[in-house]
Amino acid sequence: MVREPVTLTGANANPMPEIFDSPTEWQAQYESGWLAHYEANGAIDWSLYPRPRNQEAVGGPGIPLAESRLLFVTSAGAYLPAAQEPFAAENDLGDYGIRTIPSDTPLAEIAFAHTHYPHDAVNTDPQVLLPLRHLESLRDEGLLGELAPAFVSFMGYQPDVPRVVAETAPRVVAFAKEAAVRAALLVPA
């Protein structure tokens, strides 16, 4: 098992402080509870897991959807098996990387590396999690301005929240800026 701890000290203690209120306190609780139990027993006890919380919601202006480019973001573990490595779905400590996939990819070419949700529904109808064709139809009818050329996928089993803040979030934000989107739709699995 490879563990890549994030050191939460100094100027990099919380690179995006408004995302998560108390990363240092959270990490101490995580390491002494959930993680210590896992490392001692090789088993997960979710009763020990501290759910991430914030006190205040963040704000921002609304956008004219019909004139805006939209980024779709999924945590379903979607990837392109012909061109990309799958996520580390079997790693009990999670995978904090992202994949970007062309938005016009045929759904049959996309696979899912994520072992923490049942795949029956998505195997039957991928649009229960990846609404790529629905979003195209909403664009075509004028509800959306346009879709970003690619969408962002990650594997949503990510127990180490400060790593989400330090690794996953900046990658998603950087891609969103590169794609020059005004809006984002996030669909967890």
């Binding site: 995006m16 408004e18 995302i19 998560f20 759910r51 991430p52 919380r53 914030n54 006190q55 205040e56 919601a57 963040v58 704000g59 921002g60 202006p61 609304g62 956008i63 805006s68 980024l71 973001v73 945590s75 949503g156 929240v161 989400v164 803040v165 996953t168 979030a169 900046p170 998603v172 934000v173 969103a176 800026k177 989107v181 005004r182 809006a183 984002a184 739709l185 996030l186 669909v187 967890p188």
Partner: peptide
């Protein structure tokens, strides 16, 4: 997803999430 939604919003990108587990998503204050 709630935390990522916050990150995008703070970067100037309007964001929205839909969840079947509102009791947990709500805690992150998207």
């Amino acid at each position: 997803m709630g935390l990522l939604s916050r990150a995008l919003e703070l970067a100037g990108i309007a964001s929205v999430v839909t969840s079947w587990l509102g009791s947990v998503t709500r805690l992150t204050k998207p």
